[in-house]
Amino acid sequence: MSGKGAGAGAGPGAGTDAGPDASAPGDPATLLVAVLDRLLPPHGDLPGAGGLGLAAQILPERAEGVLAQLPAGFTALAAAEQTAALAAVEQAALAAFALLLKFAYIAYYRDPRVMARIEQATGYAARPPQPLGYELEPADPTLLDVVKARAPHYRDTREVTR
């Protein structure tokens, strides 16, 4: 399911019977790994963003607004329950959620393993745009045939007096 716009979900306190860490929100680093795996889940042979080890690339202040609102026992919840809990946090703390999501996406899509996968799937080279640039295929020489054949049709003003 998509989190964006998903309004239903467990609120704070959901999953309080979920295991040993049920009474505490948990270690921020561990929590962030779990959150990242829900934001950007495993795909093909790639683990999720948490499993890729991207939590270390996200500054604590960009995650704390979300982590602080997670229900106790979040890491012990099933994936669907975690997604629902995150959707609830997104509703309750939109700006904080958007901040974390932006930097999660940035960390994920500049990871070499992800870039290599995109190159394989689309042909988009896993390198910066410069200095090589790209080859842009030339236009079909017949493309302009229709528009070139039109008579002048702009609104001339040489005879217009103010």
Partner: peptide
Amino acid sequence: PVGTAVGQYLAGLPWGEEH
């Protein structure tokens, strides 16, 4: 890829399983 995900002129992509 980052711009596609974060959104520039077009809205950003949803998170989660649909992403």
